[in-house]
């Protein structure tokens, strides 16, 4: 099993991260990191459901979420993480990083 950290930066309307993740890793291998406009993915209930189906762990960048006017309580999937947490995931908890 090769654990992969997927990095998404674009808004839900620009890109559905679930399609590419499904093609590149199994759910158990897939961790998803949402930064910049991709954080909106975690706020939309339907998109959140489809992401939970393809990735077993979802990190949402804390600063980006706050900047856009939302907090952890608004998340329909995943949990907030700061950049140290994201680096920890990339360097220690996964073996590959794939930008979507």
């Amino acid at each position: 099993m090769v654990r992969t950290a997927f990095l998404a930066l674009r808004s839900p309307q620009e890109q559905d991260p679930s399609e590419m993740i499904r093609g590149l890793a199994s759910r158990e291998e897939a961790h998803l990191v949402l930064v910049e406009d991709a954080v909106y993915n975690a706020l939309d209930p339907r998109r959140a459901e489809s992401l939970k189906e393809v990735a077993h762990e979802i990190y949402v960048a804390k600063d980006d979420l706050a900047a856009k006017g939302f907090s952890e309580a608004d998340l329909k999937a995943g949990r907030v993480a700061d950049y140290e947490g994201i680096v920890e995931l990339i360097m220690e908890e996964t073996e590959r990083t794939v930008t979507l």
Partner: peptide, 11 residues
């Protein structure tokens, strides 16, 4: 920000 967090963590 990623680079800076990584430096702080000693990478």
């Amino acid at each position: 920000k990623l680079a800076s967090a990584a430096v702080r963590k000693g990478y």
